[in-house]
Computed example of a mutant assay.
Amino acid sequence: MSTSQVTLEGVYPILATPFTDRGEVDEESLRELVRFQLQAKVNGIALFGNASEMYTLLEREREVIAAIVTDEVKGRVPLVFGSGHTGLEGAVQLSKWAQKAGADALMVLPPYMVKPDGKRMIEYFSAIAKAVDIPIMLQDAPVASGVSIPVSTMAKLAKECENISYVKVEAPPTTVKITEVLEQSEGRLTVFGGLNGMYYYEELCRGAAGTMPACEFPDVCVEIYRRFVSGDRESARALFYQYLPFIRIGTVAGFAMSVHKEVLKEGGVIQSAYVRNPNAPIDNILRKEVLETLSGLDPHVLRWKRRTDLNG
């Protein structure tokens, strides 16, 4: 994958980090999870996002995860690494490492411990842009990070830094902000939706180039995208609305990571639904509610174990 020329569009699931029941990175489940994404014909894969529990990962674990994912993908689709940090120096170092470790593009949160003012935010993103020569996606995720990136700041950064060329808009209402970004950036910024695809269809209608949801329903997201870009909007909308209750339950505050992993475990993609503190494991009631949202639906994830068993 040519790093400097990569164009991102379509479905880029945020890869979960599978752990064993003892809380260690489960390398075999991680490989299986990557195979599951590729089988769904995703356009690319993102790692070290919020849905990867990136804030719990140790440096050595990041290295292991990056090595496994790049080995499984073998350049077939672009990889986007999250490289945001609580400070400028940390973000620059992480971004340089990510480029060397196989990232085709970076997804960068603003500093999220001490909330930056406008000047500090510009300095932070500009320093990262100068440190690497791959595309940068600004991650506007105030629900998760507590920091909102103003549209005027995004437009200024895109104008001043050639490789700041993408935004992942996760500030509700995402649809309204997507329109503002596209209008104010004068064509310099390509927009992806987030928030687990909660407004996926509407975002596409407003000009988003794709979505970056959690990773347990890639086939559904790919099919919605395929129908939409082929001009069959009505069918794309219908499929989106079929899955909307399931998508919505994957955003339950405090339990979202457990929901994603429970579904992946249910289908045999990963072996354990273990989540690291401060995420909370789900109880039997929530597990039942999650699986009920899939009643009458047929996502690949619930057939994965059967498929691999049949293939020996």
Results as ranks from 00 to 15, higher is better:
T153C: 13
R206Q: 15
A253D: 05
Y199N: 10
E266D: 06
V143S: 02
E183W: 06
S272M: 04
D104Y: 03
L47T: 01
G84T: 03
V42C: 12
R276S: 07
G146R: 10
N284L: 12
L264W: 02
E32W: 09
Y225N: 08
Y55C: 02
W97A: 02
E292Y: 01
S126P: 05
V290L: 07
V77E: 11
G193T: 03
V263H: 05
P18K: 08
F240Q: 05
V11P: 14
L297A: 11
V80G: 13
V34C: 12
E216M: 14
T7C: 03
R60W: 03
G102T: 02
C215S: 15
Y166K: 06
L88C: 15
T86G: 06
S235R: 12
Y199L: 08
K119S: 12
G197F: 06
V73H: 07
L239F: 11
E32L: 11
T251K: 02
L57T: 10
P213T: 04
N279V: 00
V6D: 00
M1D: 02
Q184S: 11
T179W: 05
K74I: 01
S2V: 01
V301S: 09
V64H: 00
D232M: 05
V77A: 10
K74M: 05
I249H: 06
E203W: 03
F36Q: 06
D133C: 04
V6T: 11
A171P: 00
D26A: 12
D26F: 08
P150M: 08
E216P: 09
